[in-house]
């Protein structure tokens, strides 16, 4: 292996099809995990924020899920759900829960009380208050959580190569197991593409936040100024 190049650029062009396939798999896994994670986390977080007592057990449970090393979690799941998309997704979604719930709760807590007081006083119903005032104002913190979750998940997905998926992790695993001169290229490609995807996702999310919350960029203080 001594004389092999660390990275052969032509490999990328030669395998562009495969790369796109893996990209698609990686993106799919990411998007589904985040969307499902949000669908679970949002109602849970809203509930938790209202009923403070439930917070420690919820944080405790989701925290425990988060602490379990992903390979252990995937390994555990595959004994029940096999080497499938679902195994990966259940595991990935579990990792998003702590981050998302924590950030949604923090975001909701950060909404200034006098804004809520004024809104209720004017005649917003509780539901209108949540959807038209609290959630929009919590958006920056929530998006920050989505960003962290997304970047984390993108990295975790590479591990799923060990259960038959992997996205870009597929290249890492293949490279690791191969003795060809392209081993290094493949591993590096897998890792770099994964990082690139994470950076890209982060930028897209930042842009989305700017679009959804234009008020947060203006004025001396951030959105929470009164």
């Amino acid at each position: 292996m001594g004389g092999d190049p660390i990275f052969r650029w032509s490999w990328v062009t030669e395998n562009s099809d495969q790369i796109l396939t893996q990209l698609w798999e990686h993106v799919q896994l990411t998007v589904i995990a985040i969307v499902v994670g949000l669908l679970i986390s949002l109602p849970v977080a809203i509930y938790v924020q209202r009923h403070r007592r439930v917070l420690p057990p919820v944080v405790g449970f989701t925290g425990m899920l988060y602490t379990i090393p992903s390979i252990a979690l995937f390994a555990f799941l595959q004994a029940y759900t096999g080497l499938s998309f679902w195994t990966a997704e259940i595991g990935l979604v579990s990792y998003t829960l702590l981050i998302l719930i924590r950030n949604i709760v923090a975001g909701l807590n950060a909404v200034p009380t006098d804004v809520k007081d004024a809104a209720l006083g004017m005649g917003y119903s509780r539901r209108q208050l949540l959807w038209r005032v609290e959630l929009p104002l919590a958006l920056p913190v929530i998006v920050a959580g989505i960003r962290i979750a997304t970047v984390t998940i993108i990295g975790l997905i590479t591990v799923t190569a060990l259960i038959g998926l992997g996205g870009f992790g597929h290249f890492i695993l293949t490279g690791f197991r191969s003795f060809s001169s392209d081993a290094s290229t493949m591993m590096l490609a897998g890792g770099l593409f994964s990082v690139a995807l994470a950076v890209f996702a982060d930028v897209v999310l930042i842009g989305t936040e700017k679009l959804l919350a234009p008020w947060a960029q203006k004025g001396a203080g951030r959105a929470m100024a009164t």
Binding site: M1, L173, M187, L188, V195, D202
Partner: peptide
């Protein structure tokens, strides 16, 4: 910190192996 979060450890191990 951000880079640390984005770098997949799987890739790092594999890459350093060579």
């Amino acid at each position: 910190g951000n880079i640390g979060r984005a770098v997949p450890s799987f890739g790092l191990i594999a890459f350093l192996f060579v």
